[in-house]
Amino acid sequence: MRRILRRREIVVDDWTHLGEDAVDGAALIVPLAELRKDPGRWWQWSGRLGVRLTPVDRVEELADELPRLDLVAVEFPTPVDGRGYSQGRLLRERLGFRGELRAVGAGVRQDQVFLLARCGFDAIELTDGEDPDAARRALQRYDVAYQPGSPETAIRRQRFFA
């Protein structure tokens, strides 16, 4: 049972990644490349559908399909690959995505979660070995911020606004 951080709470993950055991009707996360390769199959999937982006995927190309997606997973291959933060903000702020925005990958650790949440990620799938409780506490490391950001963190005072 994978546990993830979703909106400040630790919950059992109700999604499955392609390649894991997916029963018919399961909520399934499919890599964008796979979705492009076999769109007929995946858009007909019996359960809820999510897509997984790599750092080089252009989020703009998903614009028309976003309303049909319940989840977008953005991959952080390492803690220092920051491209996913831009992808996250663009999905939320420019493309208006309102489904679950999830950070995934080996780079998703407790020291990243505050930034992720400020960029609009409401679900955080920690890499193996990371302690979800520590990650949940890490969301509260700061109660002030300079920049605008999503309300997933407990910011009481902020300098700049959008």
């Binding site: 933060y85 903000r89 930034l115 960029c119």
Partner: peptide, 14 residues
């Protein structure tokens, strides 16, 4: 300085 401090999008640049 303030805007750049722990900027959520730009803390892990190339």
């Amino acid at each position: 300085r303030q805007w750049a401090t722990l900027h959520p999008e730009f803390t892990y640049l190339p």
